[in-house]
């Protein structure tokens, strides 16, 4: 039972990441490999606030979101100047730089040794230390992410995003300030993603840079690709599949040394198969659009 709760919490965490990334990838149409940056910022901010500043949990949440939003501006800014196909590159450049900072700043992040001993989240006097409590917290964060994303997408704002995705020139010619919409989307995506980091930090109680690498960003975008971007169910489904299926492999009885590698092989094969046979994912509305490459 504890194990199932653990899986459910992980699914919740990754759903937050996938749904928030979907705003940029699915709705703006930009491939971003920087999402683990916000995951990490959320985690490190929450840990720092709890451990070094000794402030209550809500302060950690607020600072995580704020810091992540600021970084969202930095990560999103290049999209205003570079062609879409190069945005991938700026995004993973940001990711690698952020990882370097996580890894090489021991005073704040603990460096490669990370930050151990993060206390469980405390809310209104209760300490949420049981898995059930964490699951409820994760569920709440997940629900708010879904609600915010849903409201954003099914609105005039979301309509402008769809327009920008397909034809920026048309949108600009009809009075939409592209830069504003892009940056706001990045900021919201970043802020939401940081909540996943906050949960992760308080749940696992230990964080280190290896949880927030380029491969982690790639994992999140794979969830979007497989589940289907552009819809709300897609990222959620992708998170379930890419968290649960590799865990299922545990029960096949592989020696632990090779398990991680086998899981990755399986995951790589999935990526290739989906790109060849179903690029829009299981529930997706859009595949990556070749027309944008020629813009």
């Amino acid at each position: 039972m504890e194990y199932m709760l653990h899986i459910a919490i992980l699914i919740g965490i990754y759903s937050i990441l996938a749904v928030s990334l979907n705003l940029v990838v699915g709705h703006l149409g930009l491939v971003s490999l920087a999402h683990a940056v916000f995951y990490g910022i959320g985690a490190y901010a929450a840990a720092f606030v709890a451990l070094r500043l000794d402030l209550p949990f809500p302060c950690g949440v607020v600072s995580a979101i704020l810091l992540s939003c600021v970084l969202g501006v930095l990560v999103g800014a290049p999209s205003l100047r570079v062609r879409d196909e190069y945005f991938v590159i700026t995004s993973f450049a940001c990711q690698i730089i952020a990882f370097s900072v996580f890894n090489n700043w021991p005073q704040v992040t603990g460096g490669p040794l990370g930050l151990p001993g993060i206390p469980p989240p405390g809310l209104l006097g209760w300490s949420l230390s049981s898995k059930w409590a964490i699951l409820v917290l994760t569920g709440l964060f997940c629900l708010s992410t879904l609600l915010i994303a849903h409201r954003l997408v099914h609105s005039p704002f979301g309509r402008v995003l769809k327009a920008i995705r397909e034809d920026e020139v048309f949108a600009e010619a009809h009075g939409k300030a592209i830069a504003h919409f892009k940056i706001v989307t990045f900021v919201i995506s970043a802020g939401l993603a940081s909540m996943a980091g906050v949960v992760y930090a308080h749940y696992i109680s230990f964080i280190d840079p290896t949880s927030f690498t380029l491969m982690e960003s790639i994992l999140v975008i794979s969830m979007l690709i497989i589940g289907g971007s552009g819809s709300l169910g897609g990222p959620f489904l992708g998170a379930i599949l890419l968290v649960a299926l590799p865990e299922a492999l545990r029960f096949v009885g592989l020696p632990s040394g090779v398990a991680a590698n086998v899981r990755q092989v399986f995951y790589g094969i999935l990526l290739v198969l989906f790109m060849v046979f179903r690029p829009q994912g299981l529930l997706g509305q859009y595949a990556f659009d070749a027309a944008r490459d020629k813009a």
Partner: peptide, 17 residues
């Protein structure tokens, strides 16, 4: 056509939420 209207509150975060 709806896209092209100006000054839509739904395009701004504060009114939207």
């Amino acid at each position: 056509v709806l896209l092209c209207f100006q000054d839509q509150p739904g395009e701004r975060l504060a009114p939207l939420f």
